[in-house]
Design a protein around this nucleic acid. Structure first.
Lengths: 229, 229
DNA sequence: TATAAATTGTTGCAATCGCAACAAGTATAC
DNA sequence: GTATACTTGTTGCGATTGCAACAATTTATA
């Protein structure tokens, strides 16, 4: 949430960016919704930084179960070198949800000694460092949700998180309910059932993908709804 | 697994370390098994790097459920600024499992411009960068396990992972079975039951905390047991 | 606009899981 | 060396969850 929104070229003059992109071997690429940016498991050492759009790291196991391992937004970093190697018969890839703009570079380029001694070299490394902190927090958030023991607790943890990010009891789901089920790693029908129960218990209300949390929700989760509209 | 084992002062001469530690405000602290290194939720901006020993980031929710969010070994980085803020009535802290040696510094010290212009300043930032990559992979590994849908799948994913790290079908659990249950976020008795089932199906064998995976285990998970002793 | 694909919503039923409770064994602390 | 805490192992039972299957609706595509 209170990510100091660092971007890759933060604090670097427009005119220097071009030169630095050459130096680091950064390429900008565009992808359309549905396209695959990277396929993991091939030993690819490319690292991507999402500049625009949304994407997700998806795993499909040998039984065909789809799992959304990470949901990526602007300034998210991804790449095989930053993920646990996929094992067994699973396949993993980063797929665009919307049209995306991605900056890509080879991992080993990041900390290499710069022959041309760009003035802003170390600044870029520091920026990248900030992006890595962003990623650690995003993954930690992921663990926060997945470590909950029941569907209700997972939903609650995720909804609370979205409401904090939005500073509001009312917020929009960033994706479909089917997708949400794969994100919290449960069966969709079981999730829908639990969601219905929560509505019947007056914990929340939904209207399409807009969700409104009632005071009872905050009581139950032991969190505060002060400061939130 | 194939972490290029970067340490904080990697590539920096012994004699320079002292000066740099002053410059960055790094302090070395020792903790005994069972002691708490950091309590999260207080807005503490300290970052720790485990030099020796093992520790874990533990959450206890308002119902008293204990969850092991992260298991930390040498060169693991931790700190409130690298984790999702704990919400609601949960409490979180980093606790030593063994006697530990920890290097601690303030987060904002890491990328600050160095007035004294230490020769190795940028090298240290790069090293820290490597530690952050290590952390991203560790968290990703955590998601890999927790995203599995059943106890059996979680156990399998974790065991496979340990066997890969050990390059062997035979390996030692790094903690107790009670702890393991909190690590894979399930009920201990249910986990023990599933473990028994797996033994009866000749997927594996245990002797205390030593586990041996049978060929049938690798067949079932669709992974290879070549290369492994 | 017609057609296909994806999403939402629902249900019965069986499998899995969590909980409570207990007993035996092992390590640790005083 | 005895008490205490922790760990391992087990069970019955009820609650939760996953699965299969289906229908209705919305969204995307030709």
């Amino acid at each position: 949430m209170n990510f100091s929104q660092v971007t890759l070229f933060e604090g670097i003059q427009e005119q220097d960016c071009r030169a630095m992109m050459d130096c680091f071997g950064v390429t900008l690429r565009s992808f359309r919704a549905g396209q695959t940016i990277l396929e993991y498991g091939s030993g690819n050492s490319l690292v991507g930084i999402l500049q625009q759009g949304a994407a997700s790291l998806v795993r499909v196991d040998r039984d065909g179960n789809r799992t959304v391992l990470e949901h990526l937004g602007p300034n998210s970093v991804f790449g095989e070198l930053l993920a646990f190697p996929c094992v067994g018969m699973d396949s993993m890839w980063v797929r665009c949800e919307d049209d995306c703009e991605v900056a890509m570079l080879r991992y080993d380029q990041i900390t290499k000694r710069c022959e041309r001694a760009c003035a802003h070299h170390s600044r870029l490394v520091e920026n990248f460092f900030g992006l890595m902190r962003h990623k650690a927090m995003a993954l930690s958030e992921r663990v926060e949700v997945l470590s909950r023991r029941s569907i209700r607790e997972k939903l609650s943890a995720y909804f609370l998180l979205l409401s904090l990010k939005n500073r509001s009891k009312r917020f929009q789901l960033p994706f479909s309910y089917s997708f949400l089920a794969d994100y919290i790693c449960t069966d969709r029908s079981a999730m829908m059932r639990e969601l219905r129960n929560m509505k019947e218990e007056r914990l929340l209300q939904t209207q399409g993908r807009e969700i409104l949390l009632y005071p009872a929700f905050f009581q139950l989760t032991g969190s505060v709804d002060k400061r939130l509209e």
